[in-house]
Nucleic acid binder design. Structure first.
Lengths: 187, 187
DNA sequence: TAGTCATACGAACGATCGTCTGTATAGTAT
DNA sequence: ATACTATACAGACGATCGTTCGTATGACTA
């Protein structure tokens, strides 16, 4: 499964071929196919694997921080560290997949939509908690700010993978500092 | 050529197959192939077509506005209108292609890098003009702000195509208003 | 020991991929 | 009228695609 994820992360979900996966796992095509029943099932399984991995590496650790600004800061720190980590090839898996399946309806699009929606919700909820806790002004446009933060983080993943330039990580981090109350954001 | 661009814009540069293109143009595979000599040449030609089209629809009109804030405002207005236009299927072509070729070196990556770099430069140069003209504070972090604006615009293209939700266009527009001096940005 | 079941295999299927060869047609220049 | 060039064609090539079929192996159960 890890092999399938690596192929999909680097070359895209479409490049995840049963033949390639068979070679990568030293199995026969028929053997790989029998495990899942269809190519689409493999792709969906890869998405689930990506969700588990992302939860374990980024979300769950951040949920140990107290709600509100501290948690969202911790979450973004981990996200930026994760997409630039050498053993996370291809950057943010969901961002790449989202772009690839933006105009293609179907089960894969639907599953990705769930994941990405929950990512937005997570961010918005934490911002809301920050507002209720008085960490941010009451008139904070939570939905818009959550959108802005997620958009910037996702774009940074693509930009960093494409240009291999760590400057974009600093730009992203600096911008987040400017958008969130700076005194509580460590970058 | 327009047919090739439409296929690539909706389903991605990889889905642009000589066979599909032959069917779309009612030509033979060999006839299509003879025009370009290789599949990669077709893909590169599609990128050039996209550059021309984008220049004609977005960049050139914006360049008629006076330099600085007015021009960058006009440019972003046109960009957002363009990616949400019904006869621009697939959203921003370069953003989709960038995500697809983020981890794949080669001529296509190089060509895309040129285009995207010039997009960043265009934005940064206009911000610099705004600063020199006194429209923005002298200590404006031009490079970072340019990065933020382009990242937000690109992410909005993907997000809008994926969720088909016009709310993201408003979020993007509102955020841009907040980032650029509001009194001179009409959204 | 015999039977059942999941697992993985080799081999092949029709389809499509990018590419190449050879040919027919149409237009232009001599 | 003849020669040349550009264009498009049909057809085939080896490779790979997703999928299916039949089979062999091993572990567990009766």
């Amino acid at each position: 499964m890890g092999a399938a994820f690596e192929i999909a992360a680097v070359d895209g979900l479409d490049a995840l071929t049963i033949g390639r996966l068979a070679v990568a796992t030293s199995m026969s095509k028929a053997g790989v196919f029998a495990h899942y029943g269809s190519k689409e099932a493999i792709q969906l399984a890869v998405i689930d694997h990506a969700v588990d991995s992302f939860s374990r590496r980024v979300v769950s650790p951040a949920l140990e921080a107290p709600p509100g600004l501290v948690r969202i800061r911790d979450f973004l720190d981990r996200y930026l560290r994760d997409i630039s980590c050498s053993d996370t090839p291809g950057g943010c898996f969901f961002t790449t997949a989202q772009a690839a399946y933006a105009g293609r309806p179907g089960p894969i699009h639907d599953r990705l939509a769930e994941v990405l929606r929950s990512l937005h919700d997570l961010t918005a909820n934490e911002l809301r908690a920050a507002v209720t806790a008085g960490e941010m002004p009451a008139q904070t446009p939570v939905a818009r700010l959550a959108y802005e933060i997620v958009a910037l983080a996702q774009a940074t993943s693509v930009e960093y993978q494409f240009f291999a330039d760590p400057t974009v990580l600093e730009h992203c981090s600096d911008t987040l500092k400017a958008q969130l109350p700076p005194e509580s954001f460590t970058g």
